[in-house]
Design a binder for these strands. Structure first.
Lengths: 188, 188, 188, 188
DNA sequence: CATGAATGAGCGTTCATTCAT
DNA sequence: GATGAATGAACGCTCATTCAT
């Protein structure tokens, strides 16, 4: 029944894309991505119809990866502050461990390669993180503020924290703390 | 080569670049930018040695433009809270009025077209805004937090606020308020 | 390689090729032809060594098909005019019923995919039609004209007649008549 | 005022296209055509937006060239038979002198690269030839036959004559005669 | 200096053919 | 033998940059 399509190859291509885009931006040639994935030029196109499709799927994949990392081990039945804390530190750790993924995500986000629908899907995926982090606001001073705005600010502060942890890794732990605390003050 | 004569042409090119990049991303062809600026293809290169030079200068220019707008009318001798307020609303108004400029700035920021030195210069230019907005922290709960981190968070919250004002213009004023207040709570 | 088993598949591929070429020209991908024939990409190459082989064999096949249709029911012992008439109308009917085949034949004929030898074979196959139609000339005004030239003209007029019948099907019968009569006038 | 577009280059590209297509079919690479025209790959596209545009314009150009050659020196005030004769021999001579052009025209005609509108324009251009050659029919046995059909037959016989003259150049003159005479018999 | 045609390396994508399953 | 993924050369077209006018 011929060689079946290989999930390994598919993810090898995605991983290669992350590396290539991190190095060369979104203009990284498909041929380079393929080569780096250990695959022929043409094979990339049996897994992704077009470069832009690869980009869109990569975007979703990276968002999912990030959310999975952030929510790992976070139990629904644990007390809220504990869940908060675990999720936040998971999230920050992910950013520290995979700075490439984060940079690529950022590039994709502002580029015009990602279709609006894909962008929407990405935000929906982020819901799992932001819902929890934003949940505190229902009783706090931002209780009148629209959810989406709270989510945006949470995300923004998280990003700033990540940037700072990465630029000053020696004090990463402290900055991580400072980030949550700033958020706490804002919302409760 | 020497110094090209017309400052008009120079800024026409920059303005055209903003429009073109907003529409087509950083891959907007130089020929298109030139055409939109009402200038010959080749002329672009007498004003900017290369496309990447144009991008780097545009980046600085936009940062300057933003800072100038934000600090307009902010007197050193006015009381701090008043200066705070004026600067914040100036800044937000700029974002509302020139969404293209902001989008282009965002694209340039994450792209790999901007040299590290240029990036540094951009941050330094931002100093005028962030210094003032961050000044509150010296007596507040973030007094131990490094300045740069505070600045990053301030910037992040500002960006989130802008996004939200743009996506829900009807309530722009309210969101603008919510933004500052969130910041205040965080810092004092 | 050896002899592939199924004659069905072989002709399914040829039929699919006709449809695909009619739609997309000679650049119709082998993969598409195979798919349309309900056969795997690779299988096409067990029935035909290469795309050009398929084309050459298709050319011969179509010529044979056309000649078979034209000569169907034409008895050697019938009087000449009767044979003439039957053959001509058979031929025209074939063109009307299988316009795709005719278009494909035309494309193959002028393309450089068909080897000279194959072309020669095609003309030889046509002999059965042209011999009969041209037989009239031996006593007529073209008696000095080389056979091949007469054949060429007969063929050309036939093609023109077909084109016209197809483009104005309502009067197909009339045009069909007009075609033979023009030929008659020319040759006797 | 920069280099102006050169008509010479434009026709060099068209001439190169004729040679390349004659040798390699319509798949002749644009890069090859450009090279043979003594021009850079990209330059082809400043003269023709796309390969298909080149093909369409080439088709019209070749038709025009053919018609111009055929009608050269044919005076409206000369007696009809004389005009007939001159036009026919001009036409045949063109085919003998530029067999490449004719082959390319034939390939373009049946390919699906030529837009219907272009095809229509080509036929209209042919009008100058066919109108005259077909004019005889108004009083002859084909007087009831639609003009377009007569034109198609005239064209078909002409093509057959050309083919034969080319394949047996030694007797070109005789075949040329045979062609007109066949036509005459058919129409008057 | 302004202009815009010229240049050619480079890229995304296709597709005939091969070959692992 | 059948299947269809794998391969990579090839192609049409783009575009930053140069340079003749």
């Amino acid at each position: 029944m011929a060689r079946p399509r290989s999930d390994d190859k598919r993810s090898a291509i995605m991983a290669a894309a992350v590396r290539a885009i991190d190095r060369q931006g979104l203009r990284a040639p498909t041929a380079l991505i393929a080569k780096e994935a250990g695959v022929a030029t043409g094979s990339l196109f049996t897994y992704f119809e077009a470069k832009s499709v690869l980009f869109n799927e990569l975007y979703v994949e990276l968002k999912r990866d990030m959310v999975a990392a952030a929510t790992e081990g976070v139990r629904t039945d644990a007390p809220l502050p504990e869940r908060w804390h675990l999720l936040w530190s998971n999230w920050m750790r992910w950013a520290l461990r995979f700075p490439q993924k984060r940079r690529v995500l950022a590039q994709l986000e502002v580029s015009d390669e990602i279709a609006p629908a894909t962008l929407a899907r990405g935000h929906q995926i982020m819901g799992d993180i932001l819902d929890l982090l934003g949940s505190a606001h229902v009783h706090g001073p931002m209780r009148e503020t629209p959810y989406a705005f709270v989510a945006a600010v949470v995300n923004a502060v998280a990003e700033a924290t990540m940037d700072f942890m990465l630029s000053d890794p020696a004090n990463a732990e402290r900055h991580c703390q400072a980030g949550v605390e700033a958020l706490s003050r804002m919302m409760k």
